[in-house]
Design a protein around this nucleic acid. Structure first.
Lengths: 208, 208
DNA sequence: TGCATTTTTGAACACTGTTCAATATATTTG
DNA sequence: CAAATATATTGAACAGTGTTCAAAAATGCA
């Protein structure tokens, strides 16, 4: 009998309904102002009902994190895969990452700044596989740069990968947390991309 | 008559009493768990009393931010001033910054990650002068590196300064927000410092 | 239709930041 | 010294938070 299946499907539908409502509130009002009660009232359910689908708020936020990774970060890395030259691919990845980070500050916060997501993973005794996969692709790119002769062969793969990741993350997060307001520059975004270009310049002339 | 002066002094003492209690709770329990009621009960006052000395919670957190900058960040930059060679001074600053950031994650969050501090400044229509001063000193250091012939003369000062700042901030914040847990490395701190060394290596061999 | 099972509710608990009339303390004046 | 004024402090109240769970409503099955 298909009742169990239908129930399961309905459960998934409600879970998605919650997630989409949560996402809408999260994107428009931010992390601090996303409350269980607001989500519940948006989909016209009681607050307690959400806890029948998500263990707690952190798990719900982790689901939002997963969606952002699935929909955006994955696409970001796949989009640059058709760039044959590994160095050009690396540069394009960095620029796309920065662009995505400043265009989607809420998602970026959830993915790379807030610890509630890491807490949710820790409780489930799970690994941050989304992050590991993304950085793994970056690592492959670095490896290709070494093999193509762009970077020195004696470089440590993980160190070089972290170097790149932390550079773009640093610029992105300083901007998103308003720390770059110390610069009285009209076009801050251009300033950041120019800085990233300086980085790529010294990487190419220095790592080779 | 010295009554007004005494009152003023007493007000400052109470303000300090609040700040020290807040700091204790903040350092041991973190940002999320630092509440006005906890601070008030620690110093055996009513919650409302705190609002006679600090406009709101953000202003109190900004005061904690200021203290961290005053006590630690300033000392960090002054300590390296006796290093004559500008490049060695720059490297030492970067390493000290990273070390301070991972040794004092709560303070670091307040100074360079949380936006509540920037919100408090914005409401008071004030500039983030603590940050600007610190990065200004870094900029001076970069300038000295250019003048000493370590870096190319055509480099943009602000871009190069941001390059350095965002690199160390990136490593520090990725570690503090547990994102480096994707690396199954036993000694993560060593890994970070090695990465920073790679950065300085490419900076010296590349920026020159 | 009646019974059993599942789903959903919403009040309750212990918190949070913040305000403000009432109270308590301290100072000045008669 | 006592009364009047001025300052300091309180704590209840408001509107919110995440979370739980007994009770109520809805559904499935005989």
């Amino acid at each position: 009998m298909g009742i169990a299946e239908r129930k399961e499907r309905e459960r998934e539908e409600v879970k998605d309904l919650i997630l989409n409502a949560a996402r809408e509130i999260f994107l428009s009002e931010g992390y601090e102002n996303t409350s269980i009660r607001k989500i519940a009232s948006k989909i016209e359910y009681s607050p307690g009902m959400i806890y029948l689908h998500y263990k707690d708020k952190n798990e719900l936020l982790l689901a939002l994190h997963d969606k952002a990774f699935e929909c955006k970060m994955k696409a970001l890395f796949l989009d640059v895969q058709n760039i044959a030259d590994p160095l050009e691919r690396l540069k394009a990845t960095g620029r796309s990452y920065l662009q995505y980070g400043i265009d989607n500050p809420q998602d970026y916060e959830l993915m790379f700044i807030l610890t509630c997501t890491m807490d949710a993973l820790a409780i489930k005794q799970e690994f941050w596989s989304d992050g590991a996969t993304a950085i793994g692709m970056l690592k492959e790119n670095v490896k290709a740069c070494i093999e193509a002769g762009y970077f020195r062969k004696d470089l440590n793969l993980d160190e070089t990968t972290l170097l790149l990741w932390s550079q773009v993350h640093g610029i992105t997060s300083l901007y998103n947390t308003e720390r770059l307001n110390i610069y009285p520059i009209e076009n801050k975004k251009e300033f950041m991309f120019r800085t990233l270009d300086v980085f790529f310049t010294i990487v190419t002339t220095g790592l080779a």
